[in-house]
Nucleic acid binder design. Structure first.
Length: 863
RNA sequence: GCCCCCGUAGCCCAACCGGCAGAGGCAGGCGACUUAAAAUCGUCACAGUCUGGGUUCGAAUCCCAGCGGGGGCACCA
């Protein structure tokens, strides 16, 4: 679509863009720096982009939506901080550099230049004076500072552990970077396990707070994200139970969420890759040791995909050892099996096959006993009589277990193959018999505590955050390793530890960090005793960079501190964060964690970084995610060239609720462009002067205008951007009508409507809005014009339609005054001929009146 | 397996606290302007809200069950 051969005074988006971009560049209307500004503050933040090339349609969406919010608050009289920067460390730059034999710096900063150009054209209302790049030493110096703060607190530590290994990128991955199908989020390679010494942040120390503080965000974060985070942290409440192992001094603890079923434990299982398994098998026969060794090799060579296939047959090896059940003294055989995870709980479980499907599958496979200890039929069938509270607290006798008349075979897990996971009452469990599940859990924990063989405890699905990467293009870890293996943190006054130049370095993935090859850089002198020492050659996960960038925007050029706590007090936390749902877990969880650490260290006074969150959906095409490989890409620059910035932005807002995906095949940038032209022509056609008295204008149009002024703010605040656009269209349509077939272009209400349209359009399509504003006789910038208050007297309609229902069906409509009383309305409704007709000879039993909208007459059915 | 979200015209989507199912757009039909077309302007809606129950004077909206679609987590004890 193009503007075509228009009359000389037609709408031309290209000309308008070319006209206003340099003027805004000059005026810098969105710079936020005046310390004397007394307006209330809002910090609106859009997730910063990774510069992987030019902007794409996803960027077009997020920056369109974030800008609506930022511009809105400015018009509402707030001092708005809306910064932008680049998340510019990371693997794609390095991979591109390797492929083309160039420096990742060049690639990265070229892309940033390209994106910046597009972003400026896109006219998001950013404060460009605060622009930052995480790959600048001025930024990553403070990543290193942050690392040292965590290190001092014992929250950054090194451990030797099984890690996720990406065989293509030749680097470790955080759990969060392994996709559900067991492949790498980055390279797509099948992730394997490898034992390596790596740096971790102790996020698990914060698991409870990260979980519990989500409640504070209820209502301002999407429910979906809150649930995803809760799921990810995955807190389980249960108990640790200590089992004595024959021939071993220290008991072995297991974690269980079902301590009530302890009497039903018939064996124990340890993770084959846990140290405990190796220790226990050491005392076994040569044959078993051999079997175990072979099994372990098999387990370690299996991929995440293989391991996670839930329907695969259970495997395991008996270790020829026995554990003693602390509840009843029974001897339980100890097995090693890979359905038990080494890094969850204690890497060992008590197996209760009757009430856990995995344990049952294993028991049936290896012919181990199955003992039912919860009668799951009890509450359902009433086989056990009603249990009174007195019975539960022990003051009354519990009834015997009669369990007769029940088809025991169908319920026997050993025969049915289905574990009994449901509620029920305890049997075969000594003192617990007759108790419900929850009471039995309580009672059992009390008993374990009394015996000193167990305690209530919690476990988390969340693991510590693995932050080291064996790659070049990231923040060097500020640690020096002494010859004797000691870790020496680089003194803060020696930061930043600069990345060495790439000259002479082999960036190709080879399993160890390329920085190790920078001999001059790696080899240093131990700052404590002057002996030879080596720098840590790993770099940090780039999620460290983005976990605190919102604070750096407050004083991005300060080289004396990461951020200014006074500025943080003023601006932070972020009032409105806007970004893609793909960051619902990783980035948001890390940023929340780091914020809590900074709070504990006294650097900030808040515990959650993002007060409100808007997650926009994805831009897709024909129902499918856009991707290069599928060849269904829509290009940002093409769309912007074809339809104009304003039309693309408006389309993003109008497509539907922001959290829904936008199928670019379903929406119409052409339609958006047509609407913009239509709105623009309204402003062009206005012939009255700016000082015309609005009151003299067409009353009906004024009502439309003021209803819009009254409704739009709450719609914007609840992110119903699509509805606001629809309402703008309604306003423009109404104005057009008055110009063409009503009071005409000189009417004051036409000017008022056009001005309001320009102000509102500024949120979505700033170029068109600015041009309209100027044509209406005002100086730039419309973005700084304050939102007008609706005139309340114009909000009341002259008359409203009241409906008359008889037995729930609409039978008549009455035009009434909006101020009509319930009584008057009822009188009118009872007098309605249509109502009387449909009532017939039936008796009216009830009349419900909701003036001025509705009267409901209820009759008694005839006969 | 566990948790969450969504089903309204051909399509994208509205509908405040339960109160006239339609605000807006796309596609389409018709008309005006035009020699004609484009552009522009105007005009046109029996979809009864996925299905079945329930609550209610009244249900797209609340409750239950089911069907369909989407998302997150998952051998996490």
């Amino acid at each position: 679509m193009s503007n075509g051969p228009e009359d000389e005074d037609g709408y031309d988006f290209a000309a308008i863009q070319a006209k206003w971009a340099p003027i805004w560049e000059e005026l810098e209307p969105f710079r936020t720096s005046d310390p004397g500004d007394v307006r209330p503050r809002k910090y609106v933040l859009d997730m910063f982009p990774y510069p992987s090339g030019d902007l794409h349609m996803g960027h077009a969406e997020v920056y369109a939506l974030g800008d609506i919010v930022a511009r809105y608050w400015r018009q509402q009289g707030f001092n708005v901080l809306h910064p932008i920067g680049w998340d510019s460390f990371g693997l794609p730059a390095e991979n591109a550099a390797i492929k083309r034999g160039i420096d990742p710096r060049g690639w990265t900063y070229d892309n940033i230049a390209q994106q910046k150009k597009s972003m400026k054209l896109y006219a998001a209302s950013f404060d460009w004076s605060r622009e930052l790049h995480t790959s600048d030493p001025e930024y990553y110096k403070w990543n290193q500072w942050l690392f040292l703060q965590l290190y001092k607190k014992g929250l950054a530590y090194r451990k030797d552990s099984w890690v996720n290994w990406d065989p293509i990128d030749q680097t470790v991955l955080a759990n969060e970077q392994v996709l559900p199908d067991g492949t790498s989020e980055r390279s797509g390679a099948v992730v394997v396990k490898k034992k390596l010494t790596q740096w971790y942040f102790k996020i698990t120390d914060y698991a409870d707070r990260l979980l519990d503080d989500l409640n504070q965000l209820e209502g301002t974060w999407p429910t979906k994200v809150l649930n995803m985070q809760r799921n990810w942290i995955g807190r389980s409440i249960g108990a640790d139970v200590d089992f004595v192992i024959e021939g071993r001094e220290a008991p072995v603890s297991v974690f269980t969420t079902r301590p009530d079923t302890l009497h039903g434990a018939t064996f124990m299982v340890v993770a084959p890759d846990a140290d405990l398994a190796a220790e226990l098998v050491a005392g076994a026969s040569a044959e078993v040791r051999e079997n175990f060794a072979a099994y372990l090799v098999k387990v370690q060579n299996s991929t995440e995909i293989e391991r996670q296939a839930t329907d695969r047959e259970k495997t395991g090896v008996f270790l020829e050892r026995y554990a003693i059940n602390p509840a009843n003294g029974e001897r339980l055989p100890v097995w090693a099996a890979d359905y038990v995870l080494a890094d969850y709980g204690h890497g060992a479980v008590m197996a209760v096959p009757a009430h856990d499907q995995r344990d049952l599958d294993f028991a049936l496979r290896f012919d181990l006993p199955v003992r039912v200890v919860v009668d799951t039929t009890a509450p359902v069938t009433g086989v056990i009589p009603v249990i009174t509270p007195g019975m539960l607290d022990g003051s009354e006798e519990l009834p015997d277990d009669p369990a007769n008349g029940v088809d025991s075979d169908a319920l026997d897990p050993a025969k049915s193959g289905t574990a009994l996971a449901g509620e029920g009452r305890l049997i075969n469990s000594g003192a617990l018999n007759g108790l419900t599940k929850s009471n039995a859990i309580k009672r059992m924990i009390e008993q374990l505590v009394a015996d000193g063989t167990g305690r209530a405890t919690k476990n988390y699905r969340l693991r510590d955050w693995l932050i080291s990467r064996q790659r070049y293009w990231g923040t060097p870890i500020p640690i020096i390793h002494g010859e004797d293996g000691t870790e020496i943190p680089v003194p803060e006054d020696q930061l930043p530890v600069l990345l060495p130049p790439t000259d002479g370095l082999d960036l190709k993935p080879k399993g160890t960090s390329p920085l190790g090859g920078a001999t001059d850089w790696v080899n240093v002198v131990n700052p404590i005793d002057g002996t030879p020492a080596k720098r840590d050659a790993d770099t940090m996960d780039t999620f460290v960079d983005s976990s605190w960038y919102f604070l750096r925007f407050l004083n991005p050029t300060d080289d004396t501190k990461a951020f200014d706590p006074k500025e943080a007090d003023k601006w932070a936390p972020v009032d409105q964060y806007v970004g893609g749902v793909e960051h619902a877990i990783l980035h948001l969880l890390y940023a929340r964690f780091i914020t809590k650490v900074l709070f504990d260290l006294g650097f900030v006074t808040f515990t959650e970084p993002f007060t409100a969150l808007l997650n926009q959906g994805m831009v897709i095409l024909d129902g499918a995610k856009m991707s290069k490989s599928k060849g269904n890409l829509v290009y940002f620059t093409e769309e912007v060239d074809k339809y104009g910035v304003d039309a693309v932005r408006l389309t993003m807002a109008f497509a539907g609720p922001p959290e829904d995906d936008i199928d670019w095949a379903d929406v119409s940038p052409v339609g958006s462009a047509k609407f913009l032209a239509r709105a623009w022509r309204v402003a062009r056609d206005v012939t009255s002067a700016p000082d015309v008295e609005w009151k003299t204008g067409d009353a009906a149009l004024r009502r439309v205008t003021h209803r819009f002024l009254a409704d739009a703010p709450s719609l914007i605040e609840s992110f119903k951007f699509n509805v606001v656009v629809a309402r703008m269209m309604e306003l423009v349509n109404a104005t057009r009508k008055v110009i063409d077939t009503g009071a005409g272009p000189a009417d004051a209400a036409v000017r008022e409507a056009a001005e309001v349209t320009a102000m509102a359009l500024n949120l979505f399509s700033p170029y068109t809005a600015e041009d309209m504003w100027q044509r209406l006789g005002y100086e730039p910038c419309v973005a700084l014009a304050q939102w007008r208050k609706a005139d309340r007297s114009l909000l009341v309609a002259e008359s409203v339609t009241a409906v008359v229902q008889v037995d729930g069906k609409v039978r008549d409509r009455l035009e009434v005054s909006p101020k009509i009383s319930n009584d008057d309305l009822e009188v009118q409704a009872r007098a309605s001929a249509a109502a009387i007709r449909s009532i017939g000879d039936r008796e009216i039993v009830r009349v419900i009146v909701r003036a001025p909208r509705m009267v409901s007459i209820v009759t008694k059915p005839a006969g």
